[in-house]
Computed example of a mutant assay.
Amino acid sequence: MIVGLTGGIGSGKTTIAKMFHELGVSIYIADIEAKKLMNTSEVIQKELIEAFGKETYKNGKLNRSYLSNIVFNQPEELKKINSIVHPRVGQHFKDWYAARSNEKYIIKEVAILFENDSYKQCDKIITVVAPIEERFRRIIQRDNTTREAIQGRMNNQWSDEKKITLSDYIIHNEDLEKAKEQVAKIHQEISVFR
C-alpha cells in the first residue's frame, strides 16, 4: 500500500515522515531523491542544461540557487523543470517500491503530491498542516530566507483547504507530542488495512 504524505512548505512533512520511520515504515522522500537524480543522472543533467543553460551546473553539481531564481518566479519554467525531473523520479520510486512490496505500507513524501497528480498513485493520503505564521518562522529559520521568497514558493502550491478535501488523514503539526499521537493513531489504522 502506498500512502502519500504531503503538506505546504514549512508544515513539517519531513518531521512527520521521521515519526513514521521510527515506527518501522519505509519512507521515500521525493525531494531528496529528485536532488540526488539531478546530480547523478546524465540524461537529466543534459536536458536541464539544454533548457536552462550551462549555469545550471557548477563544478558538476546542480546550481540550486540559479535554478531556484528561475523556477520559483516563473510558473512556465517550473513546469519545464518538472517535466524533465518528475518522470525520472516516478520511475525511481516504482523501482524502490517494488523492492518493498512485502511491507504493510510505505510512505511517499511529496511536497507537490496534488499539484503533479502523484496522489492518483496513492491508496491513502495524509496532509500535514500548521499555522501560516509558524510555517514562515520554520522556513526563515531553516533556509535563512525572506518572507517574500517563501510566499513565492507557497504560491506554487495548493492551499491546505484544497489538499484537505482530497486527503484521508490530516495531521496538525503544531505540538510535537500531539503530532506523534496522531501519527501513532494513523499508523495503527493503516496497518489494519493489509
Results as ranks from 00 to 15, higher is better:
E76K: 12
L23N: 10
Y169A: 12
E109K: 01
I107H: 00
N144H: 15
R135G: 07
E134W: 00
Y66V: 09
Q91P: 00
N73G: 15
G152T: 11
I190P: 04
D123M: 05
R88T: 14
E33I: 08
Q188Y: 07
Y97H: 12
E76A: 10
E115R: 05
I107F: 00
F136W: 01
V129G: 02
Y28Q: 05
N144E: 13
R88M: 15
I32W: 02
M154D: 05
N59L: 09
L78H: 03
S167L: 12
V183R: 06
I164Y: 01
K46G: 04
H92I: 06
A130E: 10
E109G: 04
A99D: 09
A51N: 07
K94D: 14
A130K: 04
E134Y: 01
C122D: 08
N155W: 00
Y66C: 08
S101K: 15
S11A: 15
D123L: 03
F93I: 10
A99V: 06
L67F: 06
R137W: 02
V89R: 04
L5E: 06
I29E: 15
R88S: 14
K108V: 13
Y57E: 07
K108H: 08
I49H: 02
E47K: 15
E55G: 05
D168V: 09
L67E: 09
S68A: 15
Y28N: 08
L113F: 01
E77Y: 00
R100F: 00
L176C: 07
Y66S: 03
E189S: 10
N82S: 15
I81C: 06
K13P: 08
K124G: 05
I150A: 11
K104Y: 01
